[in-house]
Amino acid sequence: MKNIRRDFLLILPFFVFLGFFEIYPILNLFVKSFFSDKGSFTLQYYRNIFLLDQYRLAIRNSLLFSTSASLFGGILGTFVGYFISHLKRSTKNFLLSLYSLPLTLSGLVVAFAFIVLLGRNGVLNQIIRLLFHLPKDYYIDIYSWPGIVFVYGFFQIPLMTLTMAAVFENLDKSIVEASKNLGATTFQTWRYVIIPSLAPGFVSGLSIQFAGMLGAFGTVLALVGGEKNLLSIQIYFQTSESTYNLPQSAALSVALILIISVVLSILNLVERKLKPGG
């Protein structure tokens, strides 16, 4: 018994590392956001977030962008997941492995790939112009908001596919059979049996997407630089560029953490409500 207790000390390095390099810096972030450069207490940086157009727009854009990107990835990923879960094992495993590849790919590499493919003079744009005899200045625009959402789909769709393939796999086939035996139409089976049992998994997949998108900026930065105003990009510029304002970046970071936490809590609540017996 004594031996086992002593073994528990093995978790110490983990807590020390996490405490010193993650928990302490985040707590420090909260504290610093209330103090000006000279060290006096102030709420100025939070007031700025509510009053300055630059930051209000950033928050609005971030919310809109994350919502559209996670719905785009979430819905398409669900269809792909459904399709894949019905294939024979070897094809299924191959596609699932292929769809886990984007998870480790650098956002910059994906930005570069899409610039070559769909940039102003991208291969696909040239082919489209040639095929449909379109003027030289016509191109599918990946530098616009819908374009950026489309590019992020390369991360979001596979992520949702992996989540939903597992959900469909675990779907209890016997209740679907039971509903059919009781005389339900295909529509009724989907409406009253399949969709309710998938919904919690869908919402949980959606929250992973949403949280990820709220913090993302690498690919956007590589595509359009600072041209698009997002909360994450504002934080980046306030810490790393010449516009440097650390307490302001701390306040913006706190705002981002709060937004993510609120969104995650709401989705978590919805997920629980949707669970049978919830």
């Binding site: 972030l29 913090g215 993302a216 934080i235 936490s261």
Partner: peptide, 17 residues
């Protein structure tokens, strides 16, 4: 999820500069 890369980055800069 709650502490995405951009937060980790700004927190590290603030704590260790």
């Amino acid at each position: 999820m709650i502490f995405p890369p951009v937060i980790v980055g700004s927190a590290l800069i603030l704590a260790f500069s």
